[in-house]
């Protein structure tokens, strides 16, 4: 058995959220730099140059990449031999609160979605997905999700007869409808299979994968590449102003599902795909 103090969790979460909001991953920098090399229009080149400059300023001055510092989302691999000394959920929310207040991040959470819509003023509560794993592991993958792109995301239950063509049609239709709104070039997370909610969670998890990663199953890796090519042929382009780079990557996660369905979720993320992992 391993004991982890709640204060260690809180401090780790605080540090993670401040740094992930100010420092974009090297995978995104590489993808944007590669996009700049293939774009031909002056507008597309100007947009990509602005984004690379923006991310450099954010890192150097330790200010957020985007004013929408999002909702705080965590995927936690919680070892079954780990005991948290204190309250785990409270530690996470205390870490988020301190990060958003002390780190000059925007507070974007309202307490009630329909009636009050009153800002909680500390960006809590965080959205926490825990998975119990065997052993003493305690791994946190954290990200912040802006809602310009979150609002463009969709989940649909397909019939098995729709097959891979149905999956492709739904992903492409979702991206085409989103157009310029989700701050392209986008990161596309796709969850296929499981249940209604499981597909959505997998799609979110897929957006937290590196832009240069691919699915371990070659069939899904090929599907990722095919969808990416089709999206980039749409011509949406950087900032939606036209060009060859509409998406930086398509990441697919899949799971076993029911004999009667192919659940498909498409979670769209902007070019500022901000996430980091830490193991305690």
């Amino acid at each position: 058995m391993r004991i982890i103090k709640d204060t260690d969790i809180k401090n780790a979460i605080k540090a993670l959220f401040i740094s992930l909001n100010c420092e974009i991953g090297d995978d995104i920098t590489t993808a944007l730099t590669n996009a700049l090399k293939i774009e031909e229009s002056d507008t597309a080149k100007a947009v990509l140059t602005q984004l690379l400059t923006n991310n450099k300023i954010a890192r150097e001055e330790q200010i957020p990449i985007c004013q929408d510092t999002g909702m705080a989302i965590l995927f936690v691999e919680y070892g079954d031999k780990v005991v948290v000394d204190g309250d785990f959920t409270k530690a996470v929310n205390d870490g988020v609160r301190e990060a958003y207040i002390d780190g000059y991040l925007r507070k974007s959470v309202v307490d009630d979605p329909v009636f009050d819509r009153k800002n909680t003023n500390d960006n809590t509560p965080a959205v926490i997905h825990t998975r119990i794993v065997s052993g003493e592991t305690f791994k946190i993958t954290a990200g912040c999700k802006g809602f310009g792109s979150e609002n463009m995301s969709k989940t649909k239950m397909l019939a098995p007869s729709a097959g891979v063509e149905g999956v492709k049609d739904f992903v492409l239709e979702t991206v085409r409808t989103a157009g310029p709104n989700p701050c392209p070039p986008i990161v596309v997370g796709v969850g296929i299979g499981g249940t209604f909610e499981q597909a959505s969670v997998m799609a979110k998890k897929a957006t937290f994968r590196r832009a240069d990663s691919e699915n371990a199953d070659k069939r899904y890796a090929d599907l990722e590449q095919e969808l990416l090519n089709s999206i980039n042929e749409m011509g949406i382009g950087p900032a939606g102003l036209g060009g060859k780079t509409s998406a930086l990557c398509v990441n697919i996660e899949y799971a076993p599902t029911h004999i009667a369905s192919i659940p498909v979720a498409v979670n769209i993320c902007c070019h500022a795909a901000r996430h980091k992992s830490i193991e305690l």
């Binding site: 947009v47 602005q50 984004l51 400059t53 923006n54 991310n55 300023i57 954010a58 001055e61 200010i63 957020p64 990449i65 985007c66 004013q67 929408d68 310009g148 310029p180 701050c183 900032a239 939606g240 102003l241 902007c270 070019h271 500022a272």
Partner: peptide, 10 residues
């Protein structure tokens, strides 16, 4: 249109 996600630069 301003460039979405270029907030630090803007």
């Amino acid at each position: 249109a301003a460039i979405g996600g270029a907030a630090a630069l803007i």
